[in-house]
Nucleic acid binder design. Sequence first.
DNA 1: CTTGTTACTTGCTTGACGCAAGTGACTCTA
DNA 2: TAGAGTCACTTGCGTCAAGCAAGTAACAAG
Lengths: 149, 149
Amino acid sequence: MLKRAYEGQVCSIARSLEVVGDRWTLLVVRDLVLGHSRFDELLDSLGIASNVLADRLSRLVDEAIVERVPYSERPERFEYRLTQKGRELGLVLLALMQWGDRHISKKPPRIARRRSDRSRVSVVLVAADGSPVEPGDLELVRGPGAAGR
Amino acid sequence: MLKRAYEGQVCSIARSLEVVGDRWTLLVVRDLVLGHSRFDELLDSLGIASNVLADRLSRLVDEAIVERVPYSERPERFEYRLTQKGRELGLVLLALMQWGDRHISKKPPRIARRRSDRSRVSVVLVAADGSPVEPGDLELVRGPGAAGR
DNA sequence: CTTGTTACTTGCTTGACGCAAGTGACTCTA
DNA sequence: TAGAGTCACTTGCGTCAAGCAAGTAACAAG
């Protein structure tokens, strides 16, 4: 996914997919969310080719989604941590997980819950006042970043 | 993305990405959400290669995310419509859009709002009682579909 | 009967991915 | 002090999916 064909598109979905829309990137982010942080750990957990992992990580670092921080000086060793921007991708992952739980996996392999009261957590659409929004009551309108026409 | 390397993974995120995690699929779904429904319309709007679009659509139909419905008999012509399963991917797209709006596009090209009162709509995490959940107050635990260990 | 539209398919080329092996800087064990 | 191990990669090679351009089949309009 080096060359992207989305050039002409003025759309935050397309823009986001340019960054995280390839085969491995979101899974790397998922593993970082789950606490894996070292290169070899990611390699084992994902079953990804090492050159591909190296490439994805350096791209995530370029995009400021991940930071490469040293945890040892002699020998030099690094780990990878999500930045705030990266952590906010968690919502996308949870939305994807929720969809997969409902439509693909019959029983959810993992459950998201609130630590304080252990209640189930879900991803939903809300209006400015916090009230839930029905999908049918949603509309998409041109915003300030829209192209001409 | 025919062959997937996620085989061993018991994770709804990985499972979902097997289905919609390639370069074009989510953009096709986005266009269907926005109301494009005919093959040529999608071709123009996306700038995708026709063989790839044909492949993605037939796979989306196989996955019951999209339906292929005839709108003319002589000549035979078809359009593509999202199923309920497909429509529910809208939440993933909105989460992605929201992330892109915040971190990539400075000004949002498109704004999601509630039709009834025109208030801004956003994707958030809520607990079972509908109250918002802080990202730090979230935990992931093994669910009924988890593998042994 | 030629041109156009729609919904594709076929063939060829490019390029991303996976695999296996190698590297460099160090530490640890005997 | 020699050899083995760890970590974080890089290099080289083969394969398979993606992209591009052109072709096709079934009809409709002029």
